[in-house]
């Protein structure tokens, strides 16, 4: 019972991170119908930016945790959204209007490029950061097992819930959100209404990258280490989350993230931890086979 509660906490933490990243996949898919396979690496880049920023701040003697966190978040979001913008601009926009496969291949190329760039500049070894947010609450003890809620876990869940609410508002209530949804439904018509579709697509990439940046910072704080390969692993899991929730669906991405996080946590605790990644991939295959539109997605065929 106590173990289950602990895994619930861990699973929700992980799920929040997957969900944040999954939104980037889903929003980009919604607007241009492609899977941005470089998105996981954008998240990895953000983790490295935050490692550098945390290390710099520690060297400068900044000891206030909230100050350090906010600074790193801002720096990371700023740089990462520029990365997101540049990836779209250089690798995808020139291919718009060509075959569906071309941007996909370009995306894989971009992913390899980003991994190698980070590997070259940062080294292939695992990078640690000075501990930022240590400690937590001991919730209860049953039979010698203590359920622990780390401050960093609380931070992840609170920040994620806040961002979800903010993005839901942005997409459903603001004029930018309306334009974004209009582009998803009919790009040509949207441009005939005077909206700069290329700009809307750029902004979508930047917003997705911003959420991945936040995820990168949070994970760095949570685990305290990063390496250049996390983009691939976490990226595939977040992608699975997006597909499970229904690619193109914003609430679906979040739901898928939480489910994947929970499945991973419980699988590790009760079944074979060494197979936890296999569990995720099995889900991906099963969803693609039996319910490609996901839990909350729209079926492809639609009466217009």
């Amino acid at each position: 019972m106590a173990l289950a509660l602990q895994q619930l906490i861990n699973g929700l933490t992980l799920g929040a991170v997957y969900g944040l990243i999954a939104i980037g996949y889903t929003m980009v898919y919604g607007i241009i119908g492609m899977i941005n396979f470089a998105h996981g690496d954008i998240y990895m880049v953000s983790a490295f930016i935050s490692v550098t920023a945390f290390t710099l701040l520690a060297a400068l003697g900044v000891s206030s945790v909230p100050l350090a966190l906010v600074t790193v978040l801002l720096v990371s979001v700023l740089f990462t959204s520029v990365y997101g913008w540049a990836v779209e601009r250089t690798a995808y926009r020139p291919l718009r209007g060509s075959t569906r496969l071309a941007p996909l291949i370009s995306a894989i190329g971009m992913s390899i490029f980003l991994q190698n760039m980070v590997q070259l500049t940062q080294g292939a070894r695992v990078k640690p950061i000075p501990p930022v947010l240590v400690g937590g609450f001991d919730l209860l003890t049953v039979d010698g097992f203590t359920v622990h809620l780390a401050y960093s876990q609380l931070l992840i869940v609170v920040v994620t819930v806040f961002l979800m609410a903010a993005f839901t508002y942005l997409l459903s209530q603001t004029s930018f959100g309306r334009q974004q949804r209009a582009c998803e439904q009919d790009r040509l018509m949207t441009s005939l209404l005077g909206i700069n579709v290329d700009r809307t697509i750029s902004l979508t990439f930047m917003l997705g990258a911003m959420l991945a940046a936040v995820a990168g910072v949070l994970v760095t704080v949570y685990y305290g280490v990063v390496d250049f390969y996390i983009g691939f692993v976490v990226g595939i899991k977040a992608f699975t989350a997006a597909v499970l929730g229904g690619i193109g669906s914003f609430p679906g991405a979040m739901l898928g993230g939480v489910l994947i996080g929970l499945i991973e946590a419980f699988w590790s605790a009760y079944l074979a931890p060494e197979y936890k990644d296999v569990a995720t991939f099995a889900i991906l295959i099963l969803v693609l086979m039996f319910r490609p539109s996901g839990l909350l997605g729209r079926p492809e065929v639609e009466k217009v």
């Binding site: 004029s175 309306r178 209009a182 018509m189 209404l193 217009v304």
Partner: peptide, 19 residues
């Protein structure tokens, strides 16, 4: 017609007035 089918009537009109 090319109205935006998954938006409300009001949202379609707001899109028309976007600029």
């Amino acid at each position: 017609r090319r109205i935006f089918p998954r938006m409300t009537v009001m949202e379609n009109l707001q899109m028309g007035a976007a600029l």
